[in-house]
């Protein structure tokens, strides 16, 4: 399991990285944390001629609050998300999901932007970006653009990123006093990719749901928002009956795929169970 030979460069700025990619005529990959890319290279599933290392670019770093958003620099590592007071305060759903991301050593190296760029449907952060309605800032040689998470995830490992583009930061709307969040997943072993997982970001007032976004992981080729379930719950109290109805709606809304361990009906069933459990504890915000 040795990667094919490649060239390596470490540009000094994003612009240099973008230009290097263009010069390589597409035969290049960016590497940040590398926690998914390196195994793919070792298995020779990917073999770019050039690796462009963007892990150390200052422009891509940092957690800060500005303009009603939490800005998460693309190379912010998972362990930084996990340990950040800013994240806990302003994006509590991310703080809830972070301990479920892989294992400690992976979290020390893997990056938030890298996770979104890969868009593994079984990963926690892409789904949570969706649940948070995050905005993804993308740089290319043509300039910078922003894409909502809802438009970002297109298909399996396919995103709005065009070849050569780099995620520079992710902007998450700030939580309010009304924000209630819940996250959980069902994984065979701690840190494994989950059979199913979900996060909820809601605003609640007096026991009523004012707004709710729910995103699932591991139930399709992309992270999945369940709009019909959200609609069914908006404006309502989270009574056992409402939760049951939401579960029924979910059953018709999801169309999960199977794999060697898990048939599709198992995924659908577990998604229902998980949704019920998360809604059951959402108001208590525990």
């Amino acid at each position: 399991m040795k990667a094919r030979a490649f060239d390596y460069m470490r540009p000094k700025c994003v612009q240099e990285a973008l230009e290097a990619f263009v010069r390589a005529d597409g035969d290049a990959s960016y590497i940040a944390g590398g926690q998914s890319l390196v195994p793919a290279l070792a298995l020779r599933l990917q073999a770019p001629g050039l690796l462009i290392d963007i892990a150390r670019l200052d422009e891509l770093r940092g957690l800060s609050v500005a303009g009603g958003h939490l800005r998460i620099g693309a190379t912010t590592r998972h362990c930084e998300i996990l340990g950040s007071d800013l994240v806990r305060e302003h994006a509590p759903l991310l703080a809830r999901a972070a301990p479920f991301v892989a294992h400690p050593a992976i979290r020390n190296k893997g990056t938030f932007g890298g996770s979104l760029a890969l868009a593994d449907p079984a990963s926690e952060f892409p789904a949570m970006a969706l649940a948070l309605d995050a905005i993804i800032e993308i740089a290319s040689v043509e300039g910078s653009r922003r894409v909502g998470a809802g438009d970002f995830f297109i298909d399996l490992y396919e995103t709005a990123l065009q070849p050569g583009e780099i995620i520079t930061a992710v902007y998450v709307p700030l939580a309010s006093a009304k924000t209630r969040t819940a996250f959980d997943e069902l994984a065979r072993r701690r840190g494994d990719y989950a059979i199913v997982g979900a996060g909820i970001d809601a605003e609640m007032q007096g026991g009523f749901v004012e707004r709710m976004r729910i995103a699932f992981l591991s139930v399709g080729s992309t992270p999945v928002r369940v709009g019909a379930v959200e609609a069914a719950l908006t404006g309502r109290q989270l009574t056992p009956q409402a939760i049951r109805q939401a579960q029924d709606v979910l059953g018709t809304e999801l169309d999960p795929v199977g794999d060697e361990h898990t048939p599709p009906e198992m995924r659908r069933h577990l998604a229902r169970v998980l949704l019920g459990r998360l809604l059951g504890r959402l108001e208590a915000n525990v």
């Binding site: 065979r188 072993r189 701690r190 840190g191 494994d192 060697e260 361990h261």
Partner: peptide, 24 residues
Amino acid sequence: CLYNEEGQLTNGSLADYLVPMACE
């Protein structure tokens, strides 16, 4: 070790073959 009907091992990696780990 999971095989398909063609006799292909479908979970032949340490990420897919589940060994017992500390938490479980």
